[in-house]
């Protein structure tokens, strides 16, 4: 399980999980679950396009994901945010389907890109993935305070010179880069689980933002490691384990919060 070709998988999955934990904290804080679900589908279309044109997959993933993020960010400013997100999402999926229908390996390619393919990680992909992860984390660290401020009290942030809309676009682009590199491993549809379940669970265990971020990373790592091991042992798809384990983590978080409330009944509500 840890030898040879699996080494790459473990390394990449670890990087992906750590990143998803951090970015996911802000996805949850900002209530950006829907964009976080939509943008990876842009990456799906990108991978399909790269596949068709014989280009570098990571390039296609990145370009399309960033394009989807900018589209959602700009169009969402005028129209209704959720409507724009939904439509951009299906447009990207439909484009992906179109591109794949032009290529020969339709079915396996769709499946791998949407639901992930653990064994598909090559050594040459390691370096770009690690590099992009560092870039994303650095961007989050750089934006940490204004991003937090504009997520928590947007009216005050605006009055203090933090432009909410620029912050939103910047965050969506980071989200896009983060998802682009993760799509080949966990798939377009399941990176989302990793960005929602662990951070949402972490919120139930702590009141401090930095602790919540670290906890969110830890839960994401545990989820991914357990998913890889289970997938390796059972031969079932990794996506299934990532999806259900993330939901399970969230369930435990909710239960913990409820139990804590029942023990120390809050006087102020």
């Amino acid at each position: 399980m840890f030898s040879g070709f699996m080494t790459n998988t473990w390394v990449v999955a670890t990087v992906v999980a750590a990143l998803a934990g951090v970015v996911g904290f802000f996805v949850v804080l900002r209530g950006s679950a829907f964009p976080a679900h939509a943008i990876p589908n842009g990456a799906f279309a990108g991978a399909a396009a790269a596949n068709l044109l014989g280009l570098n997959a990571l390039l296609g993933l990145g370009v399309f994901a960033v394009f989807a993020a900018l589209g959602i960010g700009t169009l969402g400013r005028r129209g209704r945010h959720d409507v724009v997100t939904a439509l951009a999402l299906v447009l990207m999926l439909a484009l992906g389907a179109l591109f794949l229908s032009r290529s020969t390996e339709y079915e396996p390619a769709i499946y791998a890109l949407l639901f992930g393919e653990v064994l598909g990680v090559s050594t040459t992909e390691l370096l770009p993935v690690a590099f992009l992860a560092v870039v994303c984390i650095a961007a989050i660290v750089f934006m940490y305070r204004p991003l937090t401020l504009s997520s928590v009290v947007p009216e005050i942030a605006e009055a203090r010179g933090v432009r909410s809309h620029r912050m939103e676009i910047a965050f969506l682009v980071v989200l896009a880069v983060a998802t682009a590199m993760t799509v080949p491993v966990v798939g377009a549809l399941l990176i989302f689980s990793l960005m929602i379940g662990p951070p949402a669970a972490a919120r139930s265990f702590t009141d401090r933002p930095p602790v919540a971020i670290i906890l969110s990373m830890a839960i994401a790592l545990a989820t991914v490691w357990a998913a890889i091991a289970s997938s390796y042992a059972s031969n079932w798809p990794i996506g299934f384990f990532v999806g259900t384990m993330s939901a399970f983590a969230y369930g435990i978080g909710r239960a913990w919060a409820a139990w804590r409330r029942s023990r120390r009944p809050a006087t102020r509500l």
Binding site: A33, F34, A36, H37, L114, F115, G116, G187, L189, L190, F192, S193, I196, G197, A200, P237, G239, F240, F241, V242, G243, T244, S246, A247, Y250
Partner: peptide, 12 residues
């Protein structure tokens, strides 16, 4: 989102 993630996992 949680329902979404879990159902995608099942679909997979």
């Amino acid at each position: 989102g949680i329902v979404l993630g879990a159902s995608i996992g099942l679909a997979a």
